[in-house]
Amino acid sequence: MFDISPTEWTAIQLSLRVATVATLVATPLGIAVAWLLARREFWGKSVVDAIIHLPLVLPPVVTGYLLLLTFGRRGLVGTWLADHLGLVFAFRWTGAALACGIMSFPLLVRPIRLSIEAVDQRLEQAAGTLGATPWRVFLSVTLPLALPGVLGGMVLGFAKAIGEFGATITFVSNIPGETQTISSAIYSLIQTPDGDTAALRLVVVSVLIAMAALIASEWFAQRATQRLHGN
């Protein structure tokens, strides 16, 4: 039962890689967006907010198809990126990471935004009177105090990225070794006559990864809270 085959290993490793890359690339962007939404008033703010949350409510297959139209080989952005940067998303693991990053973005941003909103702006003012530029105020006060939210958002985003299925399979298909993640491998195995045990193995693996992510997030949050409450 627990003899994981090379194909399954490949899918597990690919899932981890895709989710890790998606989370690491999305996090700085997520922090910037969260800060804008938490601390700035600007024209079209509610539209930006809606666009970020769109993947949460759109059918994943729609998001995947939109990605295909935009970042596919003949897509406007896809062609440009391939020609100028040599960056290809279509039917590559990078495309899976892009799809996962976009699908998990709202879950990543929300806790970060909430924790930035919770940072006392009077502390930021105090930092300013001590000579800190707005950027250094952010780095030395806002970000460290919002750290629990940042880590929470990262873990949540990672967990979502690991489990992403619909947008990924629509955008980059289900190619073993390239774009076949745990979810799409399970999907294939279920459709194979004697794939049940293999599918079950991958199910166990994804439950373990999800559990580990949740426990890690709790641990980070506790440590960060201890740090913040100054004891």
Binding site: L130, G131, L228, G230
Partner: peptide
């Protein structure tokens, strides 16, 4: 002149020490 370039120290009523 922005706050951070004034070189004016400020002791707030509520101290505002950085908790971290």
């Amino acid at each position: 002149i922005p706050v951070h370039r004034r070189r004016i120290g400020y002791v707030f009523q509520d101290a505002r020490l950085f908790p971290h």
